[in-house]
Each structure stands twice: as C-alpha cells, then as structure tokens.
Amino acid sequence: MKNRLSRLAVPYVIWMALFVVAPIVMIVVYAFTSAEGGFTLANFSRMGLYGVVFFRSFKLALIATAICLVIGYPVSYMMSKEGPKFQRVAMVLIMLPMWINFLLRTYSWMSILENNGLLNQFFQKIGLIGLCNALFGTNLDYFPMMNTQGAVVLGMVYNYLPFMILPIYSVIVKLDGSLIEAARDLGANGLSVFRRVILPLSLPGVLSGITMVFVPSVSTFAISKMLGGGTELLLGDLIEQQFLGGAYNPQLGAAISLVMMVIVVVCMVVMNRFGEGEEQAVML
C-alpha cells in the first residue's frame, strides 16, 4: 500500500532531478569554467569587485526581512485572536495582492513614488513639501523617493510580507489555548504569557517566515530594477546582466550565483541553530 502510494511521488522526483538538481550542477560546473571551456578559478577571483553589491543586497534584504517581521508578527498574532470569520476575510485580504501579477504590482509602486506621482501630489496638496522647505530651508518641488534604497526595501516588504504573515499565523493559530490558560493559571501576566509561551512556541513560524522573505529578497532583480532604477545594483541585477545583459558572461554569473547560494545557506543554517538555541535559552 505504502509502496504503491509512494510511486505517485515519482513524477516530482523526476521533475526535481531535471529542474532543481541539474541546474545547480550546471551552475557549479559553469562557475569553475572559463569562457574557452577549461577549468578555472578566475571567476571567483573577480568576486571581490562585487563586494559592494553583495553587501548592499544582504543589507537591504535584511532590513526588508526585519520590517516584515516587525509588521507581520503582530498582524499574525492579532489575526489568530479574532473569530474565524474575521480570520478568513483577513487571509483573503493578505493574499489578494498576490493574485495580481508581480511586475504589475511593482510597477504600480513606480507611479505612486514618482517625482510627480500620487504620493508627491498628495504631499503637495496638504502642503507638506512647502512646510518642509520652510522648516529646513530646502528648495524641493517634490520628495525624491524613486530610485532609492528605501524604495527597493519598500518593494521587498510589500511583495514578501504575506510570506512572513502566513507561516507565523499558521503556527500561532494552532497553539493550544490551554497552554495559555495554564501559563496564566501559574501566575504569568499577559506579557509573560507572550514572552514565555507564545513567542517560543511560534518561533518555528518566525524562522520559516524569515527564510521565505529573506531568500527572495536577497536575489530579487525586478524590484531593484524598477524601484531602484538600476542605480542601486543588487545581486539579482548583477547576475541578470551576466546572462541577459550587455556584460554577457554566464560563467561569472554562475559563480556569483554560487557564492550567493552558499552565503544564504550558511545564514539559514546558522539561524536555525540560533533558533534552537533560543528555545533553550528561554528554557534556562
């Protein structure tokens, strides 16, 4: 019975071999190959040149992840405390933007953030820009918001926030209510119940939320291209340039991808260790 059912997994195993394992192998092979086809480490020796891009990518992804966590955790927590009807509606509202094409969503942020975009027009109307000029002696016609790191982070937060909320929510909502009652019964006030019981027990959700936001953020290229205007080059853009752009150099692109992948994997392993440690730290 078990064997027969497990045969149903065969298509996915094939799929994974073809489209997950094979590409990774190809990336590794490419990364160690020169343009002429021989073995080389040259692709990696040039990595130092891109240190700034690496640093910026990780920094922005980290900031975006932190913001998602700060926004997402309370939302998940509040949601789980509400009635089932509220939860269903809230869930749909959170998922709703994801039904719209990713590029379209990001594109719409451009028209909001532009120099004469919606937001600046609004600030103009309420006199905020004039006020700012009067207060700080500046001479602005608009707030420059497009093509900044802030805009890129905003794009990441906007696009990936649901990936933070969903895993945390699904862990908290399944929390056994009697554990919370037990903690209260044993003398814990609201804050202690949260810190000692709810938070440690929701940590698995937090960890998978962080992973699900951080990984796509660090490798995104569309967001930085559209909202960063290409001035704030991120790893994703850099890699894209090597494959599709003018700087055509797939070997280098593969090497950058590989380094990024290794760093991300190391980060995740360290974080999961830290997560377990955290659980024990609370225990002590």
Binding site: D176, G187, N189, V282
Partner: peptide, 22 residues
C-alpha cells in the same frame, strides 16, 4: 480577579504541559 492573581492552580484535562520546556 484574573487567574494569575488567585491562590488557585489548575491541572488541565489534557495536562497542557509546555512542549518547549523540559
């Protein structure tokens, strides 16, 4: 008076032990 301020403790039906603590 909330539960945490009562000199009363409870043994819950399904024990409600904290799974993350030893």
């Amino acid at each position: 008076v909330p539960p945490h301020q009562r000199q009363i403790n409870t043994v819950f039906q399904k024990y409600a032990l904290f799974p993350h603590l030893n």
